[in-house]
Structure formats: C-alpha cells, structure tokens
Write a protein that binds this DNA or RNA. Structure first.
Lengths: 250, 250
DNA sequence: GTCGTGCGTTGACCTGAATCAACCGGGCCG
DNA sequence: CGGCCCGGTTGATTCAGGTCAACGCACGAC
C-alpha cells in the first residue's frame, strides 16, 4: 500500500547492459515465440535489437510511476511485474500482472497511465519509446502485432470490469486463479500446482477486496476441497470444474 | 437486465443503405474531425467509403451479442450505444458507452467480447471487418490511428477498474458525471446541463451498483448542492470543484 | 538462541451498499 | 377519463465484505 523504495534505479542504462543485449542475442530467447517478437523475421529482429537494452531489476524496484513521461516500452523476459493506480489517500487498484512474454506499454501513450513495480527479480528488453515509434513506421507487421496485443488487453480489461463490478469474493478468486493458470500454460510453465509470486495484498488490490477477505476466501476454498495450499505461494487447483463454475457465477 | 428484443435487424444491409452512404458523403459529416477518419486524406477517405454502409437503428435494438463472429466494425455518427457483458444468472456489467465519433471494435477481434445495444436512435457507419483489415494493410496511418484509439480505450478501462475496485458510490457517480461532461465537451456538445441518455439501471450496471444506490446517491448530491436535476435525463453540475474532489477520492 | 519484523490467518464487530417493499408520477391504451 | 405500466425514488432491513484486533509462524540479524 505504501510507496516502495526503489530497489534499483530503473532509468540508468550502463554499457554493461548494452553489452549483455549484444551477448545474448534473441536466437536463444525463451519467450521469442510468444512475445511481440514472434512476427519479426531475422532482419527485422536485428533492427529491433539495435534499439534494445536488456535491464535487470530487483524485486520491489519501481519501473516507473503513473504520470511520468513514458520514456520506454518493455518486453518482460523473466519475472513478474504489477501495474497499479493509486488514489490520493492511498487506496490502490492493481490493473494487471505481467509475466514473461508480456509487453509493457502497448498503449504507446506519452505519459504512463499507471505505476509499475517488479514483484520478483526481473529481466526486461527495453526500447526507447520514440525510437520504437519510428521503427513502427518501417515495420507495419510490428505495429499490427501491437494492435493485436492491445485488442487482447482490452478484452482482458473488460473481463476484469465484470469481475470488479459484479462478482462475489469467491467468484473473483476463482476467476483469478484460472486466469493465472491459463496464462502459465500459454507460456509453457507449470500450471498445477500454480505459483503465486504476488502477495495477498497484491491479490486483494487486484480483485478489489481486502487482504483479510482474500485470506478467508482461500481458506474457504481449501476447506471446500476446491483448492489446496501446500505453501503460501503455491495453489493446487484440485477441482478445476468447480472453479470454472464459480468463476462464471455458478 | 433482461434480454432486449431486437428493435430492428442489424445484420441486414439494404440497397437503400448503400445509396444513403453515397448520397451523404463524408464532406459534411459532423464527426469527421473527431473520429477515426480524421487521419485520412480525401483519396483515402474515398477508399474507406467504398466499404462503408450507413445504418440507422431504433433505440433498444441489439447491434450484436457477445460471442458472435465479429462481422462489422462501426463508427458512431449519431446517438448513444451501451456495451455490456452478462453472467449466466443475469448480472450485467456495462463496460462502456459510445457517443458520436466513437469507434466500435478497435480490438479487431474475431468474435465480439461484449454485446452492444442502441440507447437512442442511432446512425452508424459500418465496415465489414475483413475488408477493413485488408484496407489497413494499405493505409498504415489508419492502422496507426486505431492503435492510438485502442491506447485511449485501455487508459479509460484502467480508470474504470480503479473506480469499480476502490471507489465509493459517491465517488463513482462523481467520476461518471465528469467523464460524460469531458466527453461531451470533446465533441463540442453541451456539457452543462449534461444530458443523460441512459437509464438509472444502465448507470448502475456501469458503476457496479444497484438502481437504488444510484438514485439515493443522486439525491444526496442534489441535497448537497453539488448537482441539480432539472429533469431525470439531465444533470446540472453546480459545484464542479466538489465533484472533481469527490471523483479523486476526496 | 531470542528478538524483531513482515506476512498471513482468524475472530469479533461494524457498515456501506444490497435487498425487499412501498409508493409516486407520467405516458399510453382502451 | 381511468387504469396500468414503467422508470424512478424512498424507506426498512439484511448481509457481504470491511475494519479492528489478536495471534502464529518463518526468517533474518545479532
């Protein structure tokens, strides 16, 4: 809830970063096939690489804050990010979580509409926004891909509005777990048991609930036999049909 | 809340429609300067016009329903539209309202992610999705404009998540009125007193509240002297500073 | 080891908004 | 003209989830 200290300065780019980008070319990038990059041919990828900086960040470091001029766009390579908006009195709404392959900044706005913070250790490919926009003029397939990704984000945003406006706590948590599982599967990661890299507070602020309600609802689903919680940061989806039913308002 | 009867069949395109598109060319279109079309030069506009059908719909007619194959994209020329998602048990979340100049379907998805219904009498410019997508390949500035509009929609969606997840009823209503006023001004329409073309039920389903709570909150703001309600379908923003403060969580 | 700290859970109680119900007024139809 | 229907308002009551408070446990510092 409170402002987090910057674990690492996100804006600075060292020569070492640039070298790293050079050292580890996209060829053996784990997320190439699921990220923006998938539509680029080798020559185009090389073009993109010329404006790319690989950035590593520690957990809790702030990538940027709502309202700042949008200097960079990023592609998440490894780790998890949360995006959030704050009200002046500190109330917080997390508007999204990003995982490997997700793109940060499809909107291409001039200022950031939300703050972004690393949840885990992070590896990003970062692009200066202006240079990226110039590049888009030459690579229409890249622009097309961004539009496609923006469309997917819009669909997800509408689902989230339905969740926040009309679902009960149980339904919210069920929807959340299934969404995480679906996304883990999409990037070929273990989905059951499902890792929960974010804290209960993050889950609460994403679902429009309090920490206590999230905790109680986890307990309730566990007692139901719908899920199991071998550890705090891992859920086993025991009865997935039940979860699906709950998520759709059953 | 219940399924509305189709006031008029939306999918059928008559020769008269096509003629109308021809008769009333874009030159004297009131919304040309604020819609997608603003980026097109006359030759490009002519290209777009070849795939355009002007459609008129009655209030309450369904444009399409969530899950259907997305056959068309539309540009709202006149009137108001609501977009919504339903849960199987009938709970409804309105995800957006569209007014003249707004574009329906920036996401370019293959199936509609929500249902759309006319609130008032409606005039639309409608484009077959597939032909539009082909055209985008030739008109990169049009595609760029769509990406820009998608970005704006994403920002609005994130604001709405903050509203639904974290604001009180008063704050929601204040935010809603200011949003409508801002948009009315942006298209050069009267913003004070502000017309409310949608019903209390629509407002409730947009704000994640019940009809009763919306009504009570209107009354409360009226008794406060923050707004006045000369008619049910019109609000006067008496104390706009107070509204702004409320909307930001004051 | 033990102390402190941060995160999560649980319990008791409270409250903002939902629910249930009555009512009001305008428009439409017979 | 009267009756009815529909949208909106208002009142009484309920309840899901919030708030406040205690506690447990893992982990790191020393």
């Amino acid at each position: 809830m409170s402002t987090s200290p910057r674990g690492q300065e996100a804006a600075r780019t060292t020569t070492a970063d640039r070298l790293r980008a050079f050292e580890s070319p996209c060829d053996d990038c784990a997320i190439r096939e699921t990220s923006v990059c998938e539509v680029l041919d080798p020559a185009q990828l090389a073009r993109l690489r010329t404006i790319t900086t690989v950035v590593r960040l520690d957990p809790h470091s702030t990538l940027f804050q709502e309202g700042e001029a949008a200097e960079h766009l990023s592609n998440v390579v490894e780790g998890a990010v949360k995006l959030y908006k704050l009200l002046p009195d500190g109330r917080r709404q997390i508007t999204g979580f990003l995982f490997p392959g997700d793109f940060l900044g499809v909107a291409l706005n001039k200022t950031y509409a939300y703050s972004a913070e690393a949840i885990t250790k992070l590896r990003l490919c970062r692009f200066p926004r202006q240079r990226m926009e110039n590049l888009l003029k030459e690579l229409p397939n890249l622009e097309h891909r961004l539009l496609e990704m923006a469309g997917n984000e819009l669909v997800a945003a509408q689902d989230q509005m339905l969740l926040l406006g009309r679902k009960t706590a149980r339904e919210r948590l069920a929807s959340f777990l299934l969404m995480l599982a679906r996304r883990a599967r999409a990037r070929g990661q273990p989905e059951n048991p499902l890792p929960l890299p974010m804290s209960r507070a993050d889950i609460a602020d994403y679902l429009g609930l309090t920490i206590e309600t999230v905790s109680r609802t986890f307990t309730q689903l566990r007692k139901d036999g719908t899920i199991a919680l071998p550890e705090q940061t891992r859920v086993e989806l025991v009865n997935r049909a039940k979860l699906e039913e709950l998520a759709e308002g059953g």
